[in-house]
């Protein structure tokens, strides 16, 4: 039990002391989650909009598939991405294995189905009357898209936060694709796994608390923005 309290003190110490390893892991985590979130939002929101807004053949089946992909195991994604990025894999020549960009690819694969499915739900929950209203106020197709996205902004925010939560806390992809290389691809989560393996439970707890703090800061600032608008 003691190590949890010790972990809290250690977390504070690490942050105040400006511990290099900790800040390196924090920076890696922030970078990689930002890359993957930007990609998954850019890809996921338009696809989710299409899925939620339009009717087409197989729509129901595609929704079921994206809903299922929301529970992709991170280790599986890690293995798949490794298979593509390894020097012997089809994308080996780009040298993305054991890089932050490589982890971001895997995390984007993890996050995109979440963004698609939750965007589709948010767009679906918007009234059909919105479309009618926008068209009858003179919106063209592009403006209908942008205005619908803007109307669904709270739903999209939830989609983004959900995906961010998954990306921030996953360890399987970061470990397998990133390799947990110190000063380089060691993220907070792989560092926690390592410290736990080394029996440094206090350190694991400390890093875990720092991760929680990051998630907290992100959520608080988003809800602050939300309340202001």
């Amino acid at each position: 039990m003691n190590f949890i309290l010790d972990g809290l003190f250690q977390a504070i110490q690490l942050l105040i002391r400006g511990d290099g390893e900790t800040y390196s892991a924090v920076s890696a985590t922030l970078k990689v989650s930002t890359y993957s979130m930007v990609v998954s939002l850019l890809v996921g929101i338009p696809l989710g909009f299409l899925l939620g807004h339009h009717d087409f053949l197989w729509k129901k089946h595609i929704r079921t598939i994206t809903d299922t992909l929301m529970s992709l195991p991170t280790v599986l994604v890690g293995l798949l991405v490794y298979a593509f990025l390894t020097s012997r894999g089809p994308l080996g020549e780009y040298g993305l294995l054991f890089t932050l960009e490589g982890i971001a690819i895997g995390q984007a694969i993890l996050a995109i189905p979440i963004v698609i499915a939750l965007t589709a739900t948010a767009v679906e929950s918007i009234d059909e009357k919105l479309r009618i209203t926008l068209i009858s106020l003179g919106a063209d197709k592009k403006q209908v898209f942008y205005s619908t996205i803007w109307e669904a902004r709270y739903g999209l925010l939830a989609a983004g936060m959900n995906a961010y939560g998954r990306v921030l806390t996953e360890v399987g992809i970061a470990m397998m694709v990133g390799g947990n290389i110190k000063w380089h691809t060691r993220t907070i989560t792989t560092a926690i796994a390592l410290e736990t393996n080394k029996g440094q439970f206090e350190m694991g707890v400390a890093l875990g608390l720092i991760l929680m703090a990051i998630a907290g800061i992100v959520n608080f600032s988003l809800s602050f923005l939300r309340n202001r608008s």
């Binding site: 009234d127 919105l130 009618i132 209203t133 009858s136 106020l137 003179g138 803007w150 109307e151």
Partner: peptide, 16 residues
């Protein structure tokens, strides 16, 4: 027809 025809639907939708 853009900006020339406008419909006020039943139970209209207000933008947020």
């Amino acid at each position: 027809v853009r900006f020339r025809v406008s419909l006020l639907a039943q139970e209209p939708y207000l933008l947020k």
